[in-house]
Amino acid sequence: MSVSVVDPVDAAALIEWSAAIRRSCVEDRVGAWWPSDESVLAQFADPPSGRRRWALVYHADDGSVAGAADVAVSDGDPAEVTVGVLPEHRRRGRGTALWEAARELLAEHSPAVVQSETWSAPGVAFAERIGLSIANSEFRMLRDSASAAPDAPAVSGVDVVAWTGAVPDGLLGDWVRLNASMRDDVPLGELTRRATVIDPDWVRAHEKRMSDQGWILVRAMARAGSRGVGYTVIFVARDGDEIIVQDDTFVEGAYRGRGIARLLKAENLRQLRSVPAAAAARWVQTSTAVDNSAMLSLNRAIGFEVADISYALEGPLAIS
């Protein structure tokens, strides 16, 4: 029995690793998205600048994969560790062995804290045993992708521009500003925020990475006159997938309470009808902080229902 690091250029081994961690984290959860093999291979082939990532596998006596861990760290940010053990191999120390191997890899990078995510009470209990504690909780919500797009009343003085793919050059400045505000404003509970610098180069590099990973970006921006005041993003797998991912939705503080977020989401859900790859989907998935009452209310009003809860945990790398 041993823990080893997958060679990042070994496509077959990375796919086997991804399948193991997917099964351990997604099994028995309805409509739970997980990265495709194409996405995983692209992520390891072209990581963001300053980011290190390792795929760990735990092999049982017969050579089969019994568990896996995803370990990553970026300059100046908390490390990220996700540990998954296949159901038939649990409660035998596999998770602890993977965690200890992750700690050894991260030690030389000296991150101040480690963050992890789980979707189960046993997962929380394991994380607490290794020194982490719950820092934020989110509802994972699902909407039937076959449902008609919701209605949204017009908002006086506000129009919505929608598109797929790269941000048009004329909207790039507003997109950068709104994304930077979103990073500072999104509810994260007690989680340490990441120090992401949002600028035009970051946006274009992000768009390229997402395209390389097989995603179609479906987006909309709300504008009051010539100023962008809100945006929303949906990710659709280019080759078709059961899950469509509703990602960020953000409205500037001065424009909240006027129905702009609903207008944005409704327009982007309508736009999905013109994306052929979206036809393969069964669900639209989104996540909302459990204490974000305004967004929870909006999501329920447009047809999302709670599927489960994810727990973000944080703690020190070294346990004294």
Rank of each mutant, 00 (worst) to 15 (best):
A195N: 15
M221A: 14
R194I: 07
L172T: 10
Y231R: 05
D199R: 04
R193A: 14
A180H: 10
A180M: 00
V233G: 02
D201N: 07
A222G: 06
D212F: 05
V186R: 00
I198F: 00
D185G: 07
W175R: 12
I198D: 02
P168T: 12
I243T: 14
D169H: 05
R227K: 09
D185H: 09
I243R: 11
G214L: 10
G230E: 04
V229M: 09
R227N: 03
V197D: 09
D169I: 01
A166V: 13
R194W: 07
V203Y: 12
P187F: 10
D169F: 05
M210C: 08
G225V: 12
V186C: 02
K208E: 14
I198W: 02
G214A: 09
V203A: 01
W202D: 05
E242P: 00
W215S: 13
W202K: 01
T232D: 03
I243E: 15
V186Q: 04
M221N: 06
M182D: 07
D199F: 03
W215P: 00
I243A: 14
T196G: 02
D201F: 00
A205R: 14
R223G: 00
A205K: 03
V197N: 04
E242N: 09
E207Q: 11
T196N: 11
S181I: 00
R219F: 01
V167E: 07
E190G: 06
W215Q: 12
L172M: 15
R204A: 13
D239V: 05
V236R: 03
A180I: 02
R209E: 13
V176I: 05
D174A: 15
E242M: 02
A220Y: 01
A222L: 06
D174C: 05
G240Y: 05
V236Q: 07
R219T: 11
T196Q: 13
R194P: 00
A166R: 14
M221W: 09
G189L: 07
V176W: 01
D174Q: 06
V186S: 11
F235M: 05
G228H: 08
I216H: 07
T232H: 04
R193K: 14
L178H: 08
A205H: 02
V233H: 12
E190N: 12
V197E: 12
D184A: 15
